[in-house]
Design a protein around this nucleic acid. Structure first.
Lengths: 220, 220, 220, 220
DNA sequence: AATGAATGAGTTTTCATTCAT
DNA sequence: TATGAATGAAAACTCATTCAT
């Protein structure tokens, strides 16, 4: 009533929040990624996501339906991103040993640089992967690494530089584990070992160790 | 059902719990462990903890001060328990290789049997280890495994069955990682690889792989 | 399901509805009738009305101004319809007793077949008839039944088959009441009397009773 | 934190809202009755109920679980009240005709004086009697009037003052209908007939008519 | 005429915590 | 030690309405 004629002098591009659906929903997705990575799904606040995206809270529901589906969209986006990066490793171009070093190094570096991915994956595990299960996209996004590992192992075996003890899936899990665990648990490990696991020196040492360990295990 | 919430009108003498402080606070601790493991710190509900312990909600505050301190008490108890179990491994009794197998197997089995420990540790990491930092006890509970690994490595080196590539802390982290990651991420991995990582067959295969991998890496 | 809410990206030329104002506003009116009858004015959702009409929500405001005026339009339409039906009873054609039976029967049958009319009238009463008061149309739509009752009563009195105890307005109210109450309260009555008031057998018995009661009361 | 020591100088009896569970839950029930009668179940606001009762909103949930159960409690209380009042009619004490007049008069007067009962019953009918169905109490509260009507009819039949045309249940429904409809629809009727149905003169005339109609219909 | 984007105020419900006894 | 009553702040989600095109 009394606000019918409120004078709002901001230009439309600012007032109406750009009226650019793509930009708006992307802004929400970005904000949601930060929020959920920091606070988890349950701890994440729709209000804060909207505020950080600079849009009205209702738009979360307009674009994504509800908090769960927003979370799912975030998960899909981070999985899509890591899969894209994995595609870019052309391990076939290198000698088996070099290829394997590159792969382990990539795995380590990606997790070092993407703590949000780790946070989201951990959270999704606590939630029994219910958003992942609901996602048709992610289920279809098989990691190309398993195949690349398989081929690299085969090449290394033929070249006499690798043994044949380890299956590609388990080896993939181990490579992921050696890096993931370190970054995922850096806070408690720092307390328990009374040393800063986040220092670049420690990280560099860990990187070295992980690559060494895998290479040592693969030796014939 | 319909009247669950109605305040009950039984006299205090009937309602009153055991009035056994030790039992009461232990019941709260047990309930809190389940609750926080299942829902995390933020998702954990004081009401449910009190209800499951069968005591009044206020007693949580009476015995533990607040939700944070209760959580800290839970953390302390689970760390104390794993440290106690670790003490029971007498690795010095066995040959280096057997000792190392036993150690890796123990680490795997303990995590397989204690999913609540994993859940709590993950949650505490999300919370930047703030409860752990506040705990004087846990900080003092260094894992005895590091020393045992160190000694075992040394014995193995002397016996010519191990190499000297890996420091005890990093090796400890790797052993933990190979098991922890598998159980911690079993839900998302099951979806992504479209196979049930919780089946006893998969677990047995993983256990075998982890031990093999470590032993292979340690070979001279 | 999962992507229901996502804004659709079809070009306007495809999305665009009929662009037939009459059809569009009639579709809205029909949808609003169902919605308000089922959920009441406050419970009725503009979104659902637009969705069910298959048109954009904004058109509600374009054609009707706001929710209140839409509701008023619905009320006007249902009152118009019942008045039209009442006009079609030509009670003067029949003997007084037969005319009265026909009238009571019509009243019963109309309410039996138009539960939405009952729902709307009840709702409007809760709202203190504010939409009806705002309607110039409905105020002018006097029921022709009162006059027809008056004339039938007079003919019956002259013919010696009716008494002169009851005024036409009160008799009209009573005839309406005997049927309206039954259908309006069928849900609670079914629970309280533990019998299904909506079964055709019960309805038939009630119809018989209502006619009998009125005829008995009118006997000289 | 900063509010730990807020000085609150009101006496406990005022501040702590009396800490009298019976009084508190009764205050909530009274407030809920008014609120739901005025706005219906969906339109009724938990906030307003708590405010009017002068208690914290959460106590609604503490005492009643949720809005639905609070509504059910209100329904149970109004049905209990009317059943109690009905019990107090000792129709056996009077001659059949006098007894029937008294009964019809009571029914009329009760509804005249309890518009909230009418509002709640109408609302519950819109909701398909779902709260009533959920109530074990109300289902068991059969109106004693049906039996009293049956006995009065029988006595009147024997005394030669009543006919035997009408069954007790249908007659009960008709008696209720003649009064209920008038009060339930007073707002729309006032507009349509352009006369104030709520004036005491109109009400008195209606009362007279209802009794007359029933008595006329019962005449042999 | 018609659309989808955007908004602000509000709605039920939840929760950790404190109070009074 | 133990209880149930009570609180204030916030959470997800909804809704009638308006804006920009």
């Amino acid at each position: 009533m009394s606000t019918d004629h409120r004078p709002d002098l901001k230009p439309a591009s600012v007032r109406g929040r750009s009226r650019d659906p793509v930009a708006t929903s992307q802004a929400l997705l970005d904000a949601a990624l930060s929020e959920f990575a920091e606070h988890g799904f349950e701890g994440g606040r729709v209000d804060r996501i909207a505020a950080q995206a600079g849009v009205n809270k209702q738009l979360v529901y307009h674009y994504f339906g509800n908090k769960d589906e927003l979370y799912r969209a975030v998960l899909e986006s981070v999985y899509r991103q890591i899969r894209e990066r994995e595609q870019e490793l052309h391990l076939g171009d290198a000698e088996p040993e070099e290829a394997m070093r590159r792969l382990v190094g990539f795995s380590f570096d990606y997790l070092a640089e993407n703590p949000q991915f780790i946070a989201l994956v951990n959270d999704e595990n606590r939630l029994a992967a219910r958003h992942l299960k609901a996602s048709e996209q992610v289920a279809a996004m098989h990691s190309p690494l398993v195949q690349q590992i398989e081929q690299t192992l085969l090449r290394g075996l033929k070249a006499g530089v690798f043994n044949d003890r380890f299956g590609p899936v388990n080896l993939y899990l181990s490579i992921a584990a050696l890096s993931f665990f370190y970054f995922s648990n850096k806070n408690t490990l720092s307390v328990i070992f009374d040393r800063d696991m986040t220092s670049s020196a420690q990280i560099a040492r860990r990187r070295q160790h992980v690559i060494e360990l895998v290479m040592a295990a693969l030796r014939p």
